[in-house]
Nucleic acid binder design. Structure first.
Length: 243
DNA sequence: AATCTCAGCAACCGCCCCAAG
DNA sequence: GCTTGGGGCGGTTGCTGAGAT
């Protein structure tokens, strides 16, 4: 007895979406907003699984999607975020406005992975392939036995160089906020800090904006504008050949 | 011109997480 | 504390079109 399926498979369409289905979905979401994906297909008159509707909307129909090729800056950012986060595509996508996790995942698997491999860099560890091989130990540690050992090993190793908080604003500004630690990351910090600091826009925070009216003043304008080392040229993969 | 191969990408599947009851 | 339902995520599949043979 497993859980009930998310939809009646025998009464749902599968495969590519038709133009009419797209129009129905867009019209419904425009009228009623997102949410309750399970009941949406029936309400919208679609013979689709709710999950399928959600995926279609998020990955293809959303009006704020940025279609087209990835820029070199986006390439850089994806590589750096992947080196920090691994295959957390949704987290990576959250840092790339207009891009979806699926799009980034596909782009990684088809372009960036090969690009890194071509340069002898392991796309999983982000280390040179030879170095990654050299880290394989033939004398593995015994498994943790005590609860204390298990607790320690269950936590990620602390690395002072990596700020996994991934706040959009420049990391060096963190001390300026008295209640910084009290705010949940990713939900409150980015927009709120932008507002409080006089509006450093997302693009400037990433060093992507060439000309911008926000207080960031364009790429590399602020002394603290060094998100993930972009300004310093750290981990600069732009020179890598494609394919 | 026909066939084959492969890269790119949209979509599906199954699992996990979390909130509500 | 347990169960259930819904949403979300990452991995994988399979279709399509472009280039090669």
């Amino acid at each position: 007895m497993g859980r009930s399926p998310c939809c009646e498979k025998e009464h749902t369409n599968k495969g590519a979406w038709t133009k009419e289905e797209d129009e129905r979905l867009v019209a419904y979401i425009r009228a009623h907003g997102e949410g309750c994906w399970r009941s949406l297909p029936k309400a919208a008159g679609l013979l689709r699984c709710g999950k399928s509707c959600r995926l279609r909307w998020i990955n293809y129909l959303r009006p704020d999607l940025k279609r087209g090729n990835f820029t070199a800056d986006e390439d850089d950012l994806i590589i750096k975020l992947h080196s920090l986060l691994g295959n957390k595509w949704s987290l990576i996508a959250a840092r790339l406005p207009g891009r979806t996790d699926n799009e980034i995942k596909n782009y990684w698997n088809t372009h960036i992975r090969r690009k890194l491999l071509g340069r002898g860099i392991d796309p999983v560890t982000h280390r040179p392939v030879n170095a990654a091989a050299a880290t394989i130990s033939f004398h593995p540690q015994p498994p943790p036995t005590t609860k204390e050992e298990q607790l320690i090993l269950s936590k990620p190793p602390k690395c002072p160089d990596l700020n996994l908080d991934l706040c959009i604003s420049p990391p060096s500004c963190q001390e300026e906020d008295d209640d910084y630690e009290a705010k949940p990351a990713m939900i409150v910090r980015a927009p709120e800090l932008q507002r409080r600091r006089g509006g450093l826009c997302f693009g400037c925070s990433l060093g992507l904006q060439k000309e911008c009216k926000c207080s960031g003043g364009g790429a590399g304008a602020g002394a603290g504008n060094n998100f993930l080392g972009l300004r310093a040229g750290m981990l600069d993969f732009r020179s890598l050949p494609m394919k």
